[in-house]
Amino acid sequence: MRGVPVEPPRRLVEITVDGETVRVPEGSTILDACASLGKDIPTLCYGDTLTPKNACRVCVVEVEGARTLAPACSRKAEPGMVVGTDTERVRHSRKVVLELLASSVDLSTTPRAQEWIEEYGADPDRFGPDAERLDRPAKVDNDLYVRDYDKCILCYKCVDACGEQWQNTFAIAVAGRGFDATISTEFDAPLPDSACVYCGNCIEVCPTGALSFKTEYDMRQEGTWDESRQTQVTTICSYCGVGCNVTLHVQDNRIVKVTSPHDNPVTHGNLCIKGRFGFQHVQNLPAKEA
């Protein structure tokens, strides 16, 4: 028998989204309400396993009576709220935010970025050839994962996952200010000298590919990374008794990266160094004779 925790019943809140009425449990966000209506709101810094930071502002919606736009990912639905998710104001802000991001960082490995840029008619080149970019070299300082901060949109998700929301390791934080702000260890120390425990939970939540497995980074450099040739299989990590789910991404019969299902009620997509990176022994078998 499986025990299901029973929460006290929650009141329903009725709001209007793009003219449609929807009832959502009290405490739900506008994004939740949109999801229940099947509306696709773009998000970047929103993480299904994290507290919304609402830093990217790509999910903004128009709430009637409000002076400014509201982030759908974190603004709670209030009774009687009238929300527009596709108004001219909303589309304008999303377009400019995408232009600002794409003109300053490398979004080439950000899922759906190109799709949104086309959908909102964003033109990242409009700021001219002299528009300042981050232009940071990738940090390759260990064998397990790479920090390519030229792709970082400063969504704070890795910091939250490393810190008090999941891992409680606190190896990284945001340092500096404004355009020069970056994710950093103390005094920008290399990862092996930092508090990092290589759980890879930061990679799990990174929305842009700024954090990636060394295997993925190397294959992309070589031009051999090909997701269409990859299969995914979810299995159980065999290292300890917790029994975390691991999803192995396999290309050409080799494990190229490991993720973990976010809907696992125990681990919520988090792993430790063994589950995340300890797969080499699986493929270190002696080559078979043909």
Binding site: S93, L100, F127, R177, G178
Partner: peptide
């Protein structure tokens, strides 16, 4: 541009683009 904390995209990058223009 110099006083933006850098938390949200419109301000972090927008103030830079405004300065450039």
């Amino acid at each position: 541009r110099e006083e933006s904390c850098g938390q949200c995209v419109p301000c972090r990058v927008g103030t830079v683009r405004q300065h450039e223009a």
